[in-house]
């Protein structure tokens, strides 16, 4: 039986003052490196970026001409930017439930295995060792290339279908198949591990009691015990997935760009790809920074919304 002391100590004043000073010192020593590091490499950069977003900065990142909200206006009146925002929302809505379901499903599956559990766990987790660049390579050149020799087209050939140019086909948007599968492959393992850890914490008694009560079907056990007990994990997983999805860049850039010739086309252009082009190709750092903060705002809003939803006791999708 452990008692956690509250924020106010109940000990005598003298001891508290001494403890406070010691506490402050220890706090500073322990947090200083991280705080200073984040300050220099994140907050200064963020602040600078924020100021840039209010300036005219073409081909330079010196802060000079103040233009107020002009850059933001430029972005929000660009249908392509609006498209990219819409696109990333759609992408997130697709990838998050898919990853969630697959990760949870695999966790339940792996958990049921007696022997070879470690083997399968490793198999599903191993893709996390591969970078987005390498994965995009494999997807672009061997899995989903447009020629008959790709895996996808060989399979398509087996059912009598003509070879499809997966990545180049925007109408219907077949390139989404490529984008979603690559991210799934790379991410599912980590979240599966999170769920596995959660499942393994569930006390066995709960299941035994349920079976005694007669609720023996696997699905019922899952619905009434496993899933509810995984609530905290689920919340964390969804949060992480959403933040990651909104920042998608690597696979879009590597899969859809045409190398020397240029950046991805207007389809499949998430905000970060759009902004990369604005900042580093067009050299417009003012607008680029403005866009980055709009994306940040979007992420914050979505995250807050999500916490609010969860806080009201609703189940996750």
């Amino acid at each position: 039986m452990s008692t956690r002391t509250g924020t106010g100590s109940t000990s005598a004043p003298v001891r508290r003052r001494r403890a406070d000073r010691g506490a402050w010192l220890a706090f500073v020593v322990l947090t200083a490196p991280m705080v200073v590091g984040l300050f220099v490499f994140k907050y200064v950069a963020m602040g600078w970026g924020l100021l840039l977003s209010f300036s005219e900065a073409r081909g330079t990142i010196a802060l000079g001409t103040w233009v107020g909200l002009e850059n933001y206006r430029t972005l929000l009146t660009d249908p392509r930017f609006r498209d990219s925002l819409a696109m990333i929302v759609v992408f997130t809505v697709i990838i998050v439930p898919l990853t969630f379901a697959l990760a949870l499903g695999l966790a339940v599956l792996v958990n049921r295995l007696r022997r070879g559990r470690a083997l399968f766990r490793t198999t599903f987790f191993l893709p996390a060792a591969v970078s987005y660049v390498v994965a995009s390579l494999i997807w672009k050149m061997s899995l989903f290339s447009g020629v008959p020799s790709s895996v996808a087209n060989s399979l398509a050939g087996l059912v009598g279908q003509e070879p499809i140019a997966w990545i180049a086909t925007v109408d219907p948007p077949l390139y989404w198949v490529v984008l979603v599968t690559v991210r799934l492959w790379l991410q599912v393992g980590l979240y599966m591990i999170l769920f596995l850890a959660g499942i393994q914490e569930i006390p066995a008694e709960l299941y035994e009691a349920a079976k005694v009560d007669g609720a023996a079907s696997e699905w019922k056990l899952f619905r009434h015990i496993t899933f509810p007990m995984l609530r905290n994990t689920s919340v964390a997983v969804v949060l992480l997935l959403v933040i990651a999805a909104f920042q998608a860049f690597d696979e879009f850039y590597n899969l859809l760009s045409t190398g020397l010739a240029g950046a991805p086309g207007p389809d499949g252009r998430p905000p970060l790809v759009y902004l990369y082009d604005v900042a580093l190709v067009q050299q417009n750092y003012g607008v680029g920074s403005a866009g980055a903060f709009l994306v940040t705002l979007l992420i914050v809003v979505v995250t807050l919304l999500q916490s609010r939803l969860v806080g009201l006791g609703r189940r996750d999708a």
Binding site: W24, A45, M46, G288, V295
Partner: peptide, 29 residues
């Protein structure tokens, strides 16, 4: 574990950096 008033603000400051895409800070960094 260290009960000081600054604990929560510092924590929030640290976590807030997770929401800003690396792309936003890349060039200034």
């Amino acid at each position: 574990r260290i009960r000081v008033a600054a604990a929560r603000p510092v924590f929030l400051l640290v976590i807030a950096t997770m929401m800003v895409p690396g792309a936003a800070t890349f060039v200034p960094t």
